[in-house]
Design a binder for these strands. Structure first.
Lengths: 340, 340
DNA sequence: CGCGAATATGTTTACGTAAACACATTGCAC
DNA sequence: GTGCAATGTGTTTACGTAAACATATTCGCG
């Protein structure tokens, strides 16, 4: 058996030629059996599969990808792994790719544009069938290399802006506006905001700015805000809420950048015996499933994470894409709970 | 410029030869510059880098991997993406691989051994430098193909059993025993258990069985248990707790398969005005960070998720591994909170 | 100044697979 | 039973890179 050194181990690995020899057929026939393409008789197929199993051969999908210009890969950038949101998006992507025998190869940008740029270069070195990137804002270098290579790019989670090619998500401006309108309609007039990630989360910033605009237009005001350096978490939300409520004239309602922070706020209230929304109203963002387990249902905006991942992956797998940029709106919806 | 069709797009992609032509050097020199190996003068390096940038060339790491038997890949199987635990493990793995310019290629097994087996076959088709698998229990076919290919395998999260090669984690039997001993010492005598994933989580099962043994040995007993079909969540934990506490003679303490379930139990108690541990004691597993934001600190076992991922990845990257199976204990620790 | 080591670059070839093309054989409609 | 499409298999070649080997050139040092 022709075996060669490989770094998979220090053992020698069999190839299609070895399988072919054992099965008494040509290498090309083995290739066809492995991929399930072309015409193969039942007998030969059984022969080949048996031979492969016997010598422990596993199809090498990267070797031929070279010759066929086609690697079964999609490159994915997520801003963080700390937030369930993006693991759910990944799940959606993974579900779609799994069905098609592709794999996501991913990297984490930590919301830093230059890290994202480096990641994209790295991911392109895999010659992926496409890329999935968060948001619509990217560095110039990234846009340039993406356009030079002509790789198909799906941008996700945002539709407020101009996509490189296609984007899948919803308007964060609308989301922020809707929440502000809801709270104003409920009669609240003084607000606080809690953000995280040093304000690098541009989509959270869009929501905040839209929220602020509506609040001001209504003659109400934002009396305080807390931006944290670290990733968002329930703990951060709890501490922020504690700080905000200790102020001389605390806000009547707090808008949090996401549900983890908001849930932390609720925890603070529970621990301190404060009533929501009696003492303070709380609003989150994302509609994560754990909210339904909390003692009080938090008002939030429910975002379709899984569906967005699915839609982006499905678009990348389509044989041919519309060359014109287009936006696919996958709606987020305000869900009124018991905290506002 | 010699460009060829590629499925990255319908555009033609430049190769090292194109860069070489533009830079006025040989393809091999371009290769050396791209990889940063061998001797290259400053001038030539600048030339090559400039030429590459000019024509938008991105290094193709898979083409050469073929010839050098070395793909910059580690295959990773996680049982679920629903639980923060495994995204944290992935983070640890990713952190280590990033430093070395490798990428994880992962799949989700949903705790099903046959899915894991399929995944491993698929991941092996990438000729990875190594595999990271959850737990020590695998199908015979998986063990066979792994041994035939000689790929290096790191098993993680468990040390109760015989590793294929090396495993990184802690003893779930010890964890279950320790929790039982703690609760017994606190004076509780009747217990309930809440599990999920249809009992497919073998490590949770190990904890439960060890827990049960200690409880019985102490003359106490487990009076009820709830196993859920679905993935664990706060909501499931809340509903399970509700059910358990409605029984005629409810348990004095509930052991949950993980923190999400336990937190759901706490939420139920808060919503119902029940005291912990006065009315019922609660214990979880994992020590996820969100626990610190809850109104009461839940007793749990803190597991070193990130470190386990890191250790496994580092071991895979080592030039040569000890051929003998060995276990690397990365300790989990019981943390007593306010709920027991 | 001469000679070996270090530096710098090029040429040839191998990698394992899949496309393209070629050639049998079978089935079946007329 | 003849012809042509469908079925089944083989041969040659291309893919883009990196290892192995070869060859200049420069440098340091006695």
């Amino acid at each position: 058996m022709t075996k060669r050194r490989t770094s998979m181990s220090e053992k020698l690995q069999p190839t299609m030629h070895d399988v072919a020899r054992v099965a008494g057929v040509s290498q090309m026939t083995v290739s066809r059996v492995m991929r399930g393409t072309g015409y193969i008789s039942k007998d030969v197929r059984k022969q080949v599969v048996g031979a492969a199993r016997e010598i422990g051969y596993v199809h090498n999908r990267l070797a031929g990808g070279n010759a066929s210009y086609d690697n079964p890969i999609v490159g994915v950038v997520v801003p963080t792994m700390q937030n369930r949101v993006f693991t759910e998006v990944l799940s959606g992507i993974n579900a779609t790719l799994d069905e098609s025998g592709l794999r996501p190869v991913f990297g984490v940008s930590e919301y830093a544009p230059n890290v994202e740029e480096d990641l994209v270069f790295d991911l392109l070195s895999w010659r992926p069938r496409g890329l999935i990137l968060p948001g619509l804002e990217h560095t110039d270098s990234l846009r340039k290399i993406v356009s030079q290579t002509g790789v198909r790019v799906a941008e996700i989670m945002d539709t407020d802006g101009d996509p490189i090619s296609s984007c899948f998500g919803f308007s964060h401006i609308n989301a922020g506006e809707d929440m502000a309108k809801h709270l104003i309609a409920r009669g609240y007039r003084t607000f606080a905001y809690v953000g995280s990630h040093r304000g690098l989360d541009l989509r959270a910033t869009k929501r905040y700015e839209a929220f602020e605009r509506i609040v001001r237009d209504a003659g109400a005001q934002i009396v305080a805000h807390e931006f944290y350096e670290v990733a968002s978490s329930m703990d951060v939300g709890r501490r922020a809420t504690n700080l905000l409520l200790q102020k001389e004239t605390p806000a009547e309602a707090i808008y949090f950048a996401n549900d983890d922070l908001a849930a932390g706020g609720l925890m603070h209230c529970l621990a301190e015996g404060l009533d929501t929304p009696g003492d303070v109203a709380l609003a989150g963002f994302n509609g994560l499933s754990f909210l339904s387990a909390l003692p009080r249902m938090i008002t939030t905006t429910v975002t379709p994470r899984f569906d967005i991942g699915r839609a982006a992956a499905e678009w990348l797998l389509q044989p041919k894409a519309d060359p014109n940029p287009n936006k696919v709106e996958i709606a987020a919806e305000l869900r009124v709970g018991q905290t506002t």
